[in-house]
């Protein structure tokens, strides 16, 4: 995790399933070494955007770049080898394989020619970050709790030493305590120089650790803000938070937090 930070860019990318595009001519830059949060209402195309970045979905047009390297045509394994780590929202660990095997798989296909010592060192770094999962190396990943599974998934992406990390809802389904520690872990990873692009439903927690925030709605980028200004921006509040404001409890939480920030 000591490589120089690299940026991730999308230029005029349109992508979707079948004949219909879900994201339209998206231009997005995740600056090197920073955490960028992509926020937006449900159905905005956030997960589609993530899958396009990870290579699981081929863009119909446009290009994708890591630093100065174009990766548009690379399939997911090559993108992973190019330094792109991805944690999907669900199904993000191999459930019938053990914790240790999951970690090893995260490492060995990207560092094909490295010896066992390097893996042990990388494994040690990850387990220092997530002591919770260190206790049960032989347990099948499918038997872990939701929080532990999420940590293992992040650990599997980190163990390869990516320069860019894509996180699809890292706190989904976690208890509030876990949400905070999970995002703290993401912040710690970022401090070591890893560029992070994150989708997060829990926007308040997300902007706490982020540097920049991007609003995605209807498959289009609506704007980009410094993270600490995001929630107080009137445009964001009307087009996005207006959507969740229909849930009374949330509106209160958002406005309280926004004023506190």
């Amino acid at each position: 995790m000591t490589a120089p930070s690299r940026s991730l860019r999308m230029l005029d990318v349109s992508a979707g399933y079948g004949a219909t595009d879900i994201i339209h001519t998206v231009n997005l830059t995740a600056s090197a070494g920073l955490i960028t949060t992509i926020a937006g209402p449900n159905g905005a195309g956030k997960s589609t955007l993530m899958k396009t970045l990870a290579g699981l979905l081929r863009p119909r047009q446009g290009s994708i770049w890591i630093g100065e390297q174009e990766i548009t045509a690379l399939p997911p394994p090559r993108r992973a080898a190019a330094g792109l780590g991805y944690v999907p929202q669900e199904r993000n660990v191999f459930r019938n394989l053990s914790v240790d095997e999951n970690l090893r798989i995260g490492f060995e296909f990207i560092h094909r020619s490295s010896g066992g010592g390097e893996f042990a060192a990388a494994r040690g770094r990850v387990l220092d970050l997530f002591p919770d999962i260190a206790a049960r190396p032989k347990a099948l990943a499918g038997t872990l709790s939701g929080g532990q599974r999420q940590m293992l998934a992040l650990g599997c992406a980190l163990i390869a030493g990516p320069s860019i990390l894509l996180l699809d809802e890292p706190s989904a389904g976690l208890s509030p305590l876990y949400v905070t520690s999970m995002l703290d872990a993401v912040a710690a990873v970022n401090l070591s120089g890893v560029t992070v692009v994150m989708i997060e439903q829990n926007v308040i927690e997300a902007v706490r650790i982020s540097h920049e925030a991007v609003l995605l709605a209807g498959g289009e980028i609506k704007g980009r803000w410094p993270a600490n200004e995001f929630l107080s921006d009137p445009h964001v509040r009307s087009s996005f938070l207006g959507g969740i404001a229909s849930k009374p409890g949330l509106r209160e939480a958002v406005s309280n937090d926004a004023s506190a920030a």
Binding site: A80, V93, F94, E101
Partner: peptide, 24 residues
Amino acid sequence: TRLGRAMRAISDDPELAEVRGIER
């Protein structure tokens, strides 16, 4: 072996296996 883990990983979840760098 690495091959064996790749096989079991694909059997478990082919999409995640690709993301983890396994050439299907």
